[in-house]
Simulated scan of single mutants.
Amino acid sequence: MRIWLSVLAVTVLSWLLKASAPLIVAHHKLPASVIRMTALTAPVLLAGLIVTELGGQEIDWTQLAGVGVAGSLGVLKVPMLVAVAGGIVATALIRLSVG
């Protein structure tokens, strides 16, 4: 339940940040670097929440490896369903090989 509340909070915060920008800068054009940086805010916060939730009391490195594989596939523009499946398969294979 806590993770869903965190995701909801990040979503609302992202919407507020995106909605407040036009109100604040009104008729000013923002530099491209600022636009790129603010576009990455929500994914970075969500990644932090995922790693924190996976960490919990004791870090399961196989889960972190699976999330890393899924994230890497996402960066390579693989469809999301395939990226998630790749992360699941990587986690399962690591757990099978380690025992």
Rank of each mutant, 00 (worst) to 15 (best):
I94M: 06
I3T: 00
W4P: 00
W15G: 05
L54T: 03
G87K: 09
L23G: 03
Q63A: 15
M37E: 12
P31H: 11
R2Q: 00
A42E: 11
V51D: 03
E53L: 02
I24Y: 10
T52M: 09
L23K: 04
S33W: 15
G86M: 14
T62K: 08
G48T: 02
V75H: 07
L5H: 01
Q57N: 04
I50H: 04
L93W: 00
A92V: 14
V89A: 12
G74H: 03
I50N: 03
V78C: 07
L13W: 01
V51R: 07
V10G: 01
I35A: 11
G56C: 09
S6T: 01
A47D: 05
E58V: 13
A47Y: 07
G56L: 04
G99H: 14
L8R: 04
V98Q: 09
L8P: 00
R36F: 13
L93T: 07
S72D: 03
S20Q: 10
Q57G: 01
V82P: 00
A65S: 06
E53C: 03
A85R: 13
G86K: 13
V84N: 11
L8F: 03
A21E: 11
G55T: 10
S97N: 11
L46Q: 08
L54R: 04
L5A: 02
A39P: 06
M80G: 08
V34W: 14
R95D: 06
V25W: 15
L13S: 01
V82T: 05
V67D: 01
I50R: 04
H28A: 10
L16I: 10
G99R: 15
L76Y: 12
S14Q: 11
K77N: 15
R36T: 15
Q57D: 04
V69D: 02
A70V: 12
V75R: 11
P22S: 05
K77A: 15
L13T: 02
A92Q: 07
H27A: 07
T11A: 05
L23Y: 09
A92S: 10
D60M: 09
V25D: 09
K77L: 13
V67E: 00
V84R: 11
V7Y: 01
T52K: 08
T38H: 04
A32C: 12
I50A: 14
K77S: 12
E58H: 13
I35W: 10
K29D: 10
V98S: 08
G56Q: 05
W4Q: 00
L96G: 07
A42L: 11
V51S: 05
V82L: 07
A47F: 14
P22M: 08
T91H: 06
A65H: 03
W4E: 00
A9N: 00
V78Q: 09
T41P: 03
G86P: 06
L30C: 06
A26H: 12
M1V: 02
P43L: 09
K18P: 08
I94L: 11
P43M: 12
L45A: 14
V84Q: 09
A83C: 12
G99F: 14
M80T: 13
A42D: 10
V51G: 03
V12Q: 02
G48W: 00
L76R: 11
L81Q: 14
A90P: 02
K77R: 15
L73G: 05
G68A: 15
T11Q: 01
A47Q: 11
P79G: 09
V89E: 05
I24P: 02
V75F: 14
I50L: 14
M37A: 15
V98D: 04
D60G: 09
R2D: 00
V78G: 06
